[in-house]
């Protein structure tokens, strides 16, 4: 999807989901921004909550546009699943303006979701949440043998790695040979 298409799709965003906000009502009216993930569902997030994300915070500080304009142009994160982005938004809202606790037990336990969350959080540069997520990933293999870890995380053995590498080289060689033959045919 090109940037223009994204701009178009976000120009008519779906009704923003309202994320819970735990912080007390601010004295001055707070500005809000909008983000959407792969599923195009737009999330309304306060500037305070978005401060957790160094990436978005950096973008906002470089922009300075009105709430209406922000609503019309949500930040598109096409590489993040909708449910993962929802988790991130929820976490940012829950921890808005609060010191982060040493542990966070609300992180997903399923491997796929956790890895997706880790990658999204790393991408959005949310340092504290990344720390929790990495801790959770580390906990997944606590007390596990190397074989069990290999199975849980689908880590190929060295032999499998070597075989895959050989296969890739073989394929690359064939493709190169095919391209050479095609180029020779074109030349004729």
């Amino acid at each position: 999807m090109s940037s223009t298409e994204q701009g178009t799709s976000s120009a008519a965003p779906a009704e923003p989901t309202t994320a819970p906000e735990s912080a007390a009502a601010p004295e001055v009216p707070e500005s809000f921004y909008y983000v959407h993930g792969k599923d195009k569902v737009v999330h309304k997030v306060s500037a305070g909550a978005l401060q957790h994300s160094a990436l978005i915070h950096g973008m906002i500080s470089n922009l300075g546009y009105t709430e209406e304009q922000a609503k019309a142009n949500p930040f598109p994160f096409e590489n993040i699943d909708g449910d993962i982005l929802q988790m991130v938004v929820d976490w940012c809202n829950q921890h808005k303006g609060k010191p982060t606790p040493p542990e966070d037990t609300n992180l997903p336990k399923q491997k796929e979701k956790l890895f997706d969350l880790v990658l999204a959080v790393n991408y959005l540069e949310i340092k504290e949440l990344l720390t929790y997520c990495c801790k959770q990933v580390a906990m997944m293999v606590k007390g596990k043998s190397p074989e069990e870890i290999r199975e849980i995380w689908m880590i190929p053995t060295d032999a499998e790695d070597e075989a895959a590498e050989k296969e890739a080289k073989k394929r690359a060689g064939k493709e190169a040979a095919g391209e050479t033959a095609a180029a020779a045919g074109d030349a004729k």
Binding site: S2, S3, Y65
Partner: peptide, 23 residues
């Protein structure tokens, strides 16, 4: 400003969709 935003989001959106494996 809007041009800047478009440029920024363009860069973001060209990144691949993540796989979910340790490897």
């Amino acid at each position: 400003t809007l041009e800047n935003l478009t440029k920024m989001t363009e860069n973001l959106s060209t990144d691949p969709v993540y796989d979910t494996n340790w490897c």
